[in-house]
Amino acid sequence: MAKILGGITTSHIPAVGNAIANGLQEDPYWKPFFDAYPPIHEWLAKVKPDVVINIYNDHGLGFFLDQMPTFAIGAAHEYKNEDEGWGLKPLPPFPGDAKMSWHIIEGMVKQEFDITSCQELAVDHGFTVPMQLFWPGLGDNPDMPRAIPISANTVQHPIPTLKRALDFGKALRKSIESYPDDVKVVVLGTGGLSHQLDGERAGFINKEFDLMCMEKIVSDPEALTKISRHELVRQAGAQGTEFLMWMMMRGALGDNVKLLNQNYHIPISNTGAGTMLLECV
């Protein structure tokens, strides 16, 4: 049977992809951010997941406003990135696990999450940057697991509630754990933390709120479901709503988790960057 080993959160800022491409890990601006990742690499090298469920939010590559799924699950044999408007180069394709995708899709709909299935899905920086952070070298890295992307809408309101995001994760856990094959799974919650790119409030970062979220998500994620979506925008910034991905990931980890590593750094680009490694117990 499939087993969930743990979850990892990270910001997925496009600038991080540029920093990796330019080898800036030791640069004074970047070092406090990249220093969070070697302990996660060590953990991944130890537990060696077969599959990564990469929960991210598309930013206008895979989906447009013509058809905007609230929750979409990849069901492809492989996933490719594409240019997002500023000349991004193609990365090697990310191998998928279509058989497991369809098992998860069956499981989610059975639990009354009426998701969108995607046999083709262009994956953007929300998906690729975390893959680059956790499995440096990507296709050249023999430990890179097969990937299943899950995207939630944070582009256009109404976005899901925090409770719905957490419940999605709980249903995802059941869907994964009912998979008959012996695969080891890690779940990524990517994006956030607080940031706002648009409007006169651009540049808004809320350290106090971010740190509260990082504390509560470990021990009491249910408390975070009391935050309304409007309040989330107010406290985390217009794009800080990406915290929903963290809630989805957390729901998939079960009641009790052990915090193995965390880091918080301001600023990376316009964002409060949070990284957490949570192991299922």
């Binding site: 406003l65 256009q156 309101h157 109404p158």
Partner: peptide, 24 residues
């Protein structure tokens, strides 16, 4: 669920909520 949850019009200074109206 509180009614506030449905109030999309409580302004957040310097912030536009990109909702259905804006999307259209």
């Amino acid at each position: 669920m509180s009614l506030e949850e449905f109030d999309h019009h409580t302004p957040i200074p310097g912030t536009t909520i990109f909702n259905g109206e804006m999307a259209m």
